[in-house]
Design a protein around this nucleic acid. Structure first.
Length: 264
DNA sequence: AATACTCCCAACCGCCAGTAC
DNA sequence: GGTACTGGCGGTTGGGAGTAT
């Protein structure tokens, strides 16, 4: 048996909201709140709308803190950076942009930013060679340089480490880099910068696949550390290529050649 | 002025996770 | 543990507005 629909679609109004409906919904929520039950809300408020439709209308349009109007360049950069880090997780991206909704960001990406990004990529003649390691093989591919000219300010990323932001503008990261306020490793007594400066990985490849190990603060860590970096699995670190190597090498010269010797 | 085309965005759809029973 | 229900999310669509021909 399939799932029951959230409402009887033959008995609810669909399509664009009228100003009267907007007013009714706004007044009801200001007076009574959502009551934690969107499905029951339209009946109580006297609206012939599906509860989901009411929720969307409120969250995406009627909320008082919604910011309407064009996106700023700062917002562009935040979206571009986060999209490269985490992909199309619009709600997460929107949570970094006060007043913007996931729908806004999604629409903006689909209609404007995607094209802007494509334009940047196609007009950039430079290419970067990236070594890509799978579980059992190492291959070399060529990809276009998709770095952005405007590095985002860490002021817009209260929960992201500034060092990682610098890295993240250079290439796509496999997942969100979110770190606790007190550093990248919540169990570490060392600040992020110190953890990064003592980050010393090495790689090896055997018939069982890739293994990566690295030392931090003199101790040896496992994949958990990479996971806390936002890279997750060892091969994610390899996927992201030379830019990562360069960035880490800037911070810690001892990293040099570790990656080269592995990637060949 | 009429038509075709493109752009933009509000709204819908369907899936998934969490939760109550 | 199974089922039903809701909230939340990302993908997609429909149609109005604007622009080009």
């Amino acid at each position: 048996m399939g799932r029951a629909p959230c409402c009887d679609k033959t008995k609810v109004k669909r399509g664009p909201w009228s100003p009267e409906e907007d007013t009714t919904l706004k007044n009801y929520i200001h007076k009574y709140g959502t009551g934690g039950n969107w499905i029951a809300l339209p009946l109580k408020a006297g609206l012939k709308r599906c509860g989901k439709s009411c929720r969307l209308r409120w969250l995406n349009y009627l909320r008082p803190d919604i910011k309407h109007g064009g996106f700023t360049e700062e917002e562009d950069n935040i979206i571009l950076t986060l999209y490269h880090n985490i992909g199309s997780r619009w709600s997460v991206i929107a949570s970094h942009l006060p007043g913007r909704t996931d729908n806004d960001v999604k629409n903006y990406w689909n209609t404007k930013l995607k094209k802007k990004l494509l334009a940047e990529v196609t007009t950039s003649p430079t290419t970067t060679t990236i070594a890509t390691a799978t579980a059992t093989t190492t291959t070399t591919t060529t990809t276009t340089n998709n770095s952005f000219s405007h590095a985002p300010s860490s002021a817009y990323y209260p929960n992201l480490a500034p060092e990682m932001l610098g890295i993240s503008t250079q290439f796509p990261l496999p997942r969100l880099i979110e770190v606790p306020e007190n550093g990248i490793n919540s169990n570490s007594e060392f600040p992020l910068s110190q953890q990064l400066s003592s980050f010393s990985p090495s790689f090896s490849l055997d018939k069982s696949g890739i293994s990566a190990s690295w030392s931090v603060n003199g101790g040896c860590e496992d994949d958990k550390f990479l996971d806390e970096f936002g890279y997750g699995l060892s091969y994610d670190l390899l996927d992201i290529g030379f830019d990562f190597q360069d960035k880490i090498s800037e911070i810690n010269p001892s990293f040099t050649n570790s990656y080269d010797s592995f990637a060949g």
